[in-house]
Amino acid sequence: MNMSSDRFSITAEEYLAETSALFYLNDAVTQLLEHREEFLQFGIGRYFAEYFTSVKNGNHVLFREFSYVKGTAHNRASFIHIFWKCFRQIGKNRDLLTMMEYTSLLQLLCPDFPAEMVQNTAKIVLMEDAMDCPMSLSDFIYSFQIQFYYEEFLESVLVVYEDLLEGKNPNAVIVPTSTSAETISSEEADTQEGVESSVLLECIEGLCERFKHKHPPLSAIKEVLESSTRGSYYGFLMALAKHEGISQEIGALPNRSDLLIDPEMDQELERLVAQVAISPTSNSSSSAQGLKEPCRKPSPRKSLHQRKRIEMESDGSTEETDSSEN
């Protein structure tokens, strides 16, 4: 939640508008009215306390409708984080999933999650090519993060980009009789893909002013655009998705190298798996019994270890997805 430090010099209304407090209070009351019998037994005060604690902890977006999930920046970040927590295992198993499959996973968490969002994410990962190609979780999730968190901003960038492709600079004063089209075509624009990065950067700087906090940090955008002279829209988005600084700013996902590492959760999982492995044979005090005959049934615990070893042997990068850089 970005907030200007001079929050004491603005009016109360402006302060409230800058926070999403009213959005949540509104939703809390709506939920309360919808399920009043259920919540009344806890007491109203306790209900509000629980509601805001869950908002603070970020698990409030689970199973909620899409309009709520995308309602605030905090909700979006929370949803991305939950998605990662729930389906991290897919990445560990190095499974590749298609667009449709990712859509289904997202809809498990948010029933009316639109397929279009996933489609746009796939366009970033696959650079608008071979759209039915399966993707790795890490490639998908960082692109998804950019697409979902900055949706409105990216839409505006696309409009600007398309204008630039057609040869008009939205920042320039448009004189109907000018021959701006000529200047573009005179440089070998047709042979090269995309637009000039410096021009795009200029336009985006203008956009950022209008979007207040709801855009990636300008320094990161500059860094990305200054690394090449020309680029396509999806190339730009891909670079944003790979930028660790932006991901840190959103704060929903760990760094790429840590994405699949979570010893605590692994331990928990192993413990659960071990329990499952032991319990069918157990009668009274049978943990020893369970250990006596470990080879008889395929132990899921063992396979987990094997899996880990395989993972450690491979280099841990995410190159299996067909996402050529240019």
């Binding site: 939640m1 926070t19 949540y24 306790r46 509000f48 306390a49 805001f52 604690t53 908002v55 603070k56």
Partner: peptide, 12 residues
């Protein structure tokens, strides 16, 4: 949000 969470918890 954190402030409201604490406030309501206190109230409750």
């Amino acid at each position: 949000i954190g402030f409201l969470a604490e406030h309501f918890t206190n109230e409750a």
